[in-house]
């Protein structure tokens, strides 16, 4: 297990534009209100845990912070006034899906994502392999187990320069060791000035984290 205290990230953090402030943000899918009046402040170095029943809008809020979805009511803006939809590269969203091509190998997938995020001068830098997926780098993704795919998907965090991490139930299908690595990565990201928002079920809230429970909506 590599020593986590070295810098696990290969991408420098772009200067954070924190805080990201949400005032009375609402979103409706079709006619049904999914998010109603969410107020939230994301500070540099903060960790926010989103809780709520299924359909409470946790994933929708994460997608809103990532700039994929525009709020139907209220406003969400970074410190410099930019709306998330205008500056999507400030956030990286790891959703339920793995964003990996099953026909390609792990190395090819991660080479793509490192090239896509602007680190193309070296192929997938072996240094940033916090989840040690390097062992099965040349295995096509379709041959991997759910946990291994999840580890490979989370490795994308290692070469993202986005200051805001948005993790949608990151620890599903992960074993205890991988779960610990996730929280160590989160802590390392916060230490270097980034912010993290995690949607979670069960699992105790780590200390020093703000908790936001979304209402019964949806």
């Amino acid at each position: 297990m590599r020593n986590m205290h070295e810098n696990p990230f290969s991408a420098p953090l772009t200067s954070g534009f924190f805080p990201l402030i949400l005032r009375g943000v609402g979103y409706a899918r079709g006619e049904a209100a999914v998010l109603g009046g969410v107020d939230m402040v994301v500070e540099a170095g903060s960790l926010s845990i989103l809780r709520g029943a299924n359909g409470a809008g946790k994933t929708t809020l994460l997608r809103l912070l990532a700039g994929l979805v525009r709020p139907a009511a209220g406003a969400a803006a970074w410190a410099d006034g930019a709306r998330p939809a205008r500056v999507p590269e400030r956030a990286i969203l790891i959703g339920h899906q793995d964003a990996l091509k099953s026909a390609l190998t792990v190395a090819e997938n991660l080479d793509f994502w490192s090239g896509f995020s602007g680190l193309a001068e070296t192929p997938w830098p072996r240094g940033s392999d916090p989840f040690s997926v390097w062992a099965h780098a040349d295995v096509p993704v379709r041959a991997l187990s759910a946990g291994q795919r999840r580890r490979a998907a989370l490795t994308r965090l290692a070469f993202s320069s986005a200051p805001l991490w948005l993790l949608d139930e990151p620890t599903t299908a992960l074993d205890a060791a991988a779960r610990r690595i996730v929280w160590e990565l989160v802590a390392a990201h916060r230490r270097r000035g980034g912010a993290v928002v995690v949607a979670m079920h069960g699992e105790t809230t780590p200390e020093g984290a703000a908790e936001l429970t979304l209402g019964g909506g949806g």
Binding site: R63, A66, G67, L68, P88, E89, A91, I92, L93, G95, H96, Q97, D98, A99, L100, K101, S102, W113, F116, S117, G118, R156
Partner: peptide, 13 residues
Amino acid sequence: RDGSLEPMLTGAL
């Protein structure tokens, strides 16, 4: 379907 469209749309590209 495999979820890589969203990061591609919200990346630097």
